[in-house]
Amino acid sequence: MATSVVELQDLHKIYDIGGERVAALDGIDLVIEEREMVAIVGASGSGKSTLMNVVGCLDRPTSGKYLLSGNDAGSFSDNRLSDTRGRYIGFVFQSYNLLPQLTAAQNIELPLRYNPRNFDRKQAVEEALARVGLSDRANHRPNQLSGGQQQRVGIARALVGQPALLLADEPTGNLDSRSTEEIIGLLQELNSQDGMTVVMVTHEPEVSAATRRIVTLRDGKILTDEKIDQRVFSGYERSEEPAEVLR
C-alpha cells in the first residue's frame, strides 16, 4: 500500500490570545494521497492558513498527529523541519514572496542553495524557468515582471527542488483572470505530468473547481470533503507513471 503524502489525525492547533484559548484547528482528520490535487476552501478564520502552515512544516500542531509520507513530523527538530521545507515541500504564496534584490534565476536557485542536491543547480534552474515559460526573463528582477510572471517565478522556485508536495496559499489571489488561468493550468500540469501532490488554499470557486477534491473548513473543523469525478475536467488524464515521492 502506498503511503499517504499527508495524514492528519485529530489535529488541534490552539492559540493563546490574551489568556483566551482559540482553537484554529479543532480535530482535523485528513488523508491526502500521492498525486492528488486538493483545494482547501473556507471563510477567513476557518483555519485554512493554519492548516497550510502545519502541513507545510512551518508550524507545529498543539496536539494530534501529522504524518508526512509516513514520518511523524511532530517529532522533527527545527533543523529537520527546515530541511523538510527545503527538500520535500514547495511553497507558492499569494504575494509571490520573491526577494526583490535577486533576479528571477537567483530567486529560483535559492532553495537549492540552502539544500544542495545531487543534481546540477544551474541546469535545474534553467529547466524550472523553461517549465514556467520564462527562460527569456531569467535575469529580470521581480519589479521588472508582471504579477502573473512573478507568480510563475514563484512556482518555478517551488518546483526546482522537485518536491513531493506543492503547497499554494491563494496562488491566484492577486492575479487577473487570464493570469489565474495560466497559473492554475501550470499547477494542474505539475500535478498530472510531474506527479506532484498539490494542495491549494483558495476562496475562488473557479479555482477550486480545477481540482478533483475540495475540502471545506469551518471553525477549524472539516465541514465537507468532496471528491469530484475526474470526468468533470476536460483533458485531464491521470498519469500512470510511478509516483516519485521523497527522493
Binding site: 527545527d78 533543523n79 527546515s82 530541511d83 514572496n97 535559492l110 532553495p111
Partner: peptide, 16 residues
C-alpha cells in the same frame, strides 16, 4: 523580516 521568513520557508535553517 519578510525576507527572513521567505528564506526560512524555502528551507533555510536558523543557523543559515
Amino acid at each position: 523580516t519578510r525576507e527572513i521568513g521567505i528564506r526560512r520557508a524555502i528551507g533555510a535553517r536558523r543557523a543559515a
